[in-house]
Design a protein around this nucleic acid. Structure first.
Lengths: 122, 122
DNA sequence: CCGCATCCAATAAGATACTG
DNA sequence: CAGTATCTTATTGGATGCGG
């Protein structure tokens, strides 16, 4: 398997298709946290401390527009909004899993990639 | 970016580790095209028509700094520069593979995600 | 010519404050 | 609680220029 199963045509790289829906900086992380449970806005905020409310709201709306996430509003006081992976979003699980696996292995080192790279590359 | 306190605090989502090295908009695509062969700058340009020279050069330098890509300069006229995946870069293959698989399945539809989402989600 | 570098406009992301 | 509104900063896109 290779990048060039496009033997003749000028087909777009399939990876760009993924980028199209996962392109936002925090989108994979948000989806990852929705993987095992439905979450509220404030829960996601706590789980992703470095994200701002603005980006969380914005990315959630984009993910919803792309059909990856389902938003449910409970008209209570105080308001309650829940986000869940849609079935379409679930199709991305293998991708997130692969990312997660790599991340777990290279977690410590990734913040000083040059060193690990040297260690691995020799 | 605050990442150093992995010791004191609970670890980050591993996905963020991947984002740290694949974070650039075109980085996964670039790596993907280096997967099966060493490529020249101009080859990558042709394979990723939508990327600008500036972003290609910039991302390639970042990927090199992160040890994912090896850059080889041939001091000829006209100049020739080749880029290849390093062994460290090769560890990302499963991630790119997963992305590619999803992309191939959802290629046509991803440009109109809402429709597919409706079809899948019901 | 090839592989960039540099300047400038456009877009995405971050910080902070405020509201129904 | 779950967001907006607004401003500032970082990242990306486009065009041009230049040394080898």
């Amino acid at each position: 398997m290779a990048a060039a199963n496009a033997t003749t045509e000028e087909r777009k790289c399939p990876i760009e298709t993924v980028i199209h829906v996962l392109g936002g900086k925090w989108k994979p992380t948000i989806l990852w946290h929705l993987l095992d449970a439905t979450r509220r806005f404030s829960e996601l905020e706590k789980m992703i401390p470095e994200i701002t409310q603005k980006m969380l709201a914005q990315h959630l709306r984009e993910l919803e527009a792309d059909g990856l996430v389902v938003r449910t509003v409970y008209p209570t006081v105080p308001p309650k909004v829940e986000y869940a992976l849609s079935e379409y979003g679930i199709t991305l699980v293998p991708v997130m899993q692969a990312m997660c696996n790599w991340g777990e292995v290279h977690q410590t080192s990734a913040w000083k990639p040059t060193e690990v790279a040297r260690a691995i590359n020799g």
